[in-house]
Simulated scan of single mutants.
Amino acid sequence: MGQGEPGDLTGRAFPLGDWGRPAERLDELYRWVERGALETAAWYLADRTGKRRGARVLRGGAAAGAVAGAALPLLDMTGVVGGVAPWGYLALLLGVACVAADRYFGVTSGWMRDVATAQAVQRRLQVLQFDWASESVREVLGPAEGTAGEAAERCLLVLRRFSEDVTELVRAETADWMVEFRTGSAPLGIQAGGVAGGRAAEGAVVPGRLGVPPGGTRPNMPRQRPPEAR
Rank of each mutant, 00 (worst) to 15 (best):
P143L: 07
L38I: 04
S163D: 04
P73L: 03
V140D: 13
V127E: 14
V166C: 15
P22I: 04
W19N: 11
N220F: 06
R182P: 01
G211A: 11
E39W: 14
P227E: 05
D18C: 03
F162K: 04
Q3G: 03
V99H: 15
D176C: 13
R56P: 00
R56C: 08
D176T: 10
R12S: 04
G184V: 06
D176W: 09
G146M: 01
V81Y: 08
R160H: 12
S185D: 12
L188A: 12
V212P: 06
D47R: 15
L156I: 11
W19Q: 00
P22S: 09
A201I: 01
D114L: 00
V80D: 10
G20S: 14
W43H: 15
R225K: 11
G79H: 02
D165F: 00
V195G: 14
E34V: 12
G215A: 14
R25P: 02
A68S: 05
R182L: 07
G4A: 09
V80A: 02
A64Q: 06
G215R: 09
G215C: 01
G203I: 00
Q126L: 15
D47W: 05
F162Q: 03
T174M: 04
R160L: 14
V205K: 04
L92F: 12
R103Y: 10
T108C: 07
T49E: 15
G95Y: 02
G83D: 03
R223I: 03
G106S: 01
D131Y: 13
W43P: 06
G211D: 01
V99N: 11
G65A: 05
A97P: 09
E202C: 01
L90W: 14
Y44D: 07
P207T: 12
A42K: 07
R171W: 05
Q126W: 14
G193A: 10
A133C: 04
A100D: 08
V127I: 07
T217A: 12
A23F: 06
A229S: 04
Y104M: 11
D27C: 02
P187A: 03
A41D: 14
G36A: 11
V158K: 14
R161P: 00
R223M: 12
R225Y: 09
L157G: 15
V121F: 02
L92T: 02
T10C: 07
T117L: 14
D47N: 04
T78E: 06
V80Q: 13
R230Q: 01
L125Y: 06
A148F: 02
E5Y: 03
A55P: 12
A46V: 11
A204T: 05
G69P: 03
Y44G: 12
G69K: 03
G65R: 01
A120F: 11
A144M: 13
A133S: 15
